[in-house]
């Protein structure tokens, strides 16, 4: 499964970068969303994907019984998801403000800091 995900991740990254390179600011936002998903999947895939063994310790036991999924990348991704939302919200509002000020959604027109 991991090797299959590697290709998916590649495609997601490519799509994200392509969207972020567009001059229309709305597309930039879409690219940002794809990028954060791609990054999360990347961390998830390289640490190994295990089916049906969540990193929980059953009641009464002191340690998990048998092999479980790696909890560390999950902890990293969990915060990454929430932070990505915060950053996305910031970016979206910033873009919206920029659009209002510049009056144009072409990124190449947003060159000056003075407007």
């Amino acid at each position: 499964m991991e090797s299959l995900m590697a290709y998916v991740i590649g495609i997601l990254f490519a799509a994200a970068i392509y969207m972020m390179l567009r001059r229309s600011i709305v597309k930039l936002v879409i690219g940002l969303i794809i990028l954060s998903n791609a990054a999360n999947l990347l961390i998830f895939a390289v640490s190994g994907m295990t089916r049906g063994a969540p990193p929980l310790i059953p009641e009464g036991a002191a340690a998990p019984l048998g092999i479980i999924a790696d909890p560390l990348p999950q902890a990293l991704i969990l915060t990454a998801i929430v932070i990505a939302f915060g950053v996305l919200a910031f970016a979206v509002v910033l873009i919206h403000r920029a659009y209002e000020v510049v009056g144009n959604d072409d990124l190449d027109q947003m060159k000056d800091t003075d407007t």
Binding site: P54, L56, E59, L78, T79, V82
Partner: peptide, 12 residues
């Protein structure tokens, strides 16, 4: 702390 859940999820 023991089952799926926690501050992030609950906050969401």
């Amino acid at each position: 702390h023991d089952e799926p859940g926690g501050g992030f999820i609950a906050g969401l």
